[in-house]
Amino acid sequence: MRLLTLRLDLADHALHPMHAFVAADDRYGPTRLLQWNETGDGTNLMVFRVAGPREPYLDRIEAVDGVRSVSVASTAEGPISGGFFLFVEDEIGPIQRDIVDAHAAESVVVVPPVVFRTDRAATITFVGPTDDLSRIVDRLPPAVGVEVRRVTSGDAPLTRPVDRLTERQREALATAWAVGYYEEPRAATVADVADELDRAPGTVAEHLRKAESRLVAHAVGRG
Score class of each variant (00 low, 15 high):
206 E>S: 10
14 A>G: 07
74 S>R: 15
84 F>S: 01
146 V>W: 04
191 A>V: 15
4 L>E: 01
42 G>I: 12
2 R>M: 09
88 V>D: 01
164 R>L: 14
168 R>C: 03
63 A>D: 14
30 P>I: 10
170 R>Y: 00
69 S>K: 07
34 L>W: 02
126 F>Q: 05
10 L>C: 10
170 R>S: 07
107 S>N: 12
29 G>I: 10
20 A>R: 07
47 V>S: 03
209 R>A: 09
203 T>W: 11
209 R>S: 11
212 E>C: 07
3 L>E: 08
156 A>I: 10
178 A>N: 07
201 P>D: 06
92 I>E: 01
150 R>H: 11
103 H>P: 00
217 A>T: 11
44 N>Y: 11
28 Y>A: 07
131 D>T: 15
95 I>R: 00
155 D>T: 15
221 G>D: 13
78 G>N: 06
149 R>C: 11
108 V>I: 14
148 V>K: 01
214 R>E: 13
50 V>A: 10
129 P>A: 05
112 P>N: 05
30 P>E: 14
19 H>C: 07
197 L>K: 00
94 P>W: 06
190 V>F: 01
109 V>N: 02
174 A>L: 14
159 T>P: 02
86 L>V: 12
1 M>D: 04
210 K>V: 13
96 Q>F: 00
179 V>E: 05
204 V>A: 09
123 T>L: 02
43 T>A: 12
80 I>D: 05
75 T>F: 11
81 S>Q: 12
46 M>E: 14
24 A>E: 14
200 A>T: 13
194 A>I: 12
166 T>R: 10
92 I>A: 00
11 A>V: 08
16 H>R: 09
125 T>Q: 06
152 T>Y: 04
169 Q>F: 07
13 H>Q: 12
89 E>W: 00
149 R>T: 13
172 A>T: 08
196 E>F: 04
64 V>R: 03
108 V>E: 04
113 P>N: 05
144 V>W: 01
103 H>W: 13
205 A>P: 01
169 Q>G: 04
17 P>V: 12
121 A>C: 14
83 G>Q: 04
158 L>K: 05
43 T>M: 04
73 A>I: 12
163 D>W: 02
221 G>K: 07
130 T>S: 11
44 N>C: 08
153 S>G: 14
158 L>E: 09
60 R>G: 01
135 R>H: 08
128 G>W: 00
72 V>Q: 04
49 R>S: 13
33 L>Q: 10
148 V>P: 07
216 V>L: 15
187 A>E: 15
201 P>G: 08
49 R>L: 12
